[in-house]
């Protein structure tokens, strides 16, 4: 029933926070290698949806499948190891460690504490680390403590940590938030580079950025599924226009 070409299959997912239904009966299917953009006004439930997929928040209804494996409500570290990577709105990296150390931690092949009792010199492939740092413009900052990076650089570090793990599905929550136009351009280049090799779900507001990268768009409104399709279809969709009436439509 579930095609093997699907990477993420969400079925009727929802969550109720002591009376407030943040997301209800949301379903979405994302194919392998697709770049899907999640659109919606603030409070539409996009971040909550991402939280449920990666295990940060426990859902109260519905299921999530990664390929054929059900991952609903599993602990975050288990879901992460099954192949889902998450980048947060507020960049979260290890501020007291250096850029190189951050990436080394992200690049660890094994997760158990006993498997990692070995020395740092083994199992860390320096060329792969260098490659990723090159891609994300961090090659000159390898020994800098992550807490000293600029906002844009911190975003790229988090992206780098994601890329180096080679997850099947990448969840990006507003990756260009707070970036300059120049940094946004660099970021879209990084993301186009990732396209095809990973399945990516992006929450974004910046429509110019969305146009650059999106294959398909899913629109959420008040925690529910509203519409889905290519960007041209979405722009013509009456329901979407109604939902955004008064907020200027899709600019």
């Amino acid at each position: 029933m579930i095609e093997s070409k699907l990477d993420l299959y969400i079925d009727g997912l929802g969550v109720n926070f002591s009376g407030f239904q943040a997301v209800s009966n949301f379903s979405m299917v994302v194919a392998h290698g697709e770049m899907r953009v999640l659109l919606g006004a603030n409070g539409a439930g996009k971040t909550t949806l991402m939280d449920m997929i990666c295990g940060k928040t426990q859902s109260t209804e519905g299921k999530v499948f990664l390929g054929e494996q059900e991952i609903t409500n599993k602990p975050p570290h288990v879901i992460a190891r099954l192949g889902i990577g998450r980048k947060f709105q507020i960049p979260s990296v290890f501020k007291e460690l250096t850029v190189l150390q951050n990436l080394s931690v992200a690049a660890m092949k094994q997760v158990s504490v006993f498997a990692n009792l070995g020395s740092m010199k083994r199992q860390i492939h320096m060329d792969r680390l260098a490659e990723v740092m090159e891609l994300t413009n961090l090659n000159k900052k390898a020994d800098h403590v992550a807490g000293t990076l600029s906002h844009g650089e911190t975003q790229w570090l988090e992206l780098a940590m994601l890329i180096i793990r080679n997850p099947k599905v990448i969840l990006l929550d507003e990756p260009t938030a707070g970036m300059t136009a120049d940094e946004t351009l660099k970021t879209s280049r990084i993301m186009n580079d990732l396209k095809g090799r990973h399945t990516i779900i992006v929450v974004e507001h910046d429509m110019a950025f969305v146009r650059e990268i999106a294959d398909k768009i899913t629109v959420m409104h008040q925690g529910k599924f509203l519409a889905e399709g290519r960007i041209s279809e979405i722009e013509k969709n009456q329901a979407v226009k109604d939902a955004y009436l008064g907020s200027g439509g899709i600019a």
Binding site: R81, E96, R165
Partner: peptide
């Protein structure tokens, strides 16, 4: 440093 970040990288 950041327990949650570590979890989302797969570490228990």
């Amino acid at each position: 440093d950041d327990q949650n970040r570590a979890k989302y990288l797969g570490f228990d």
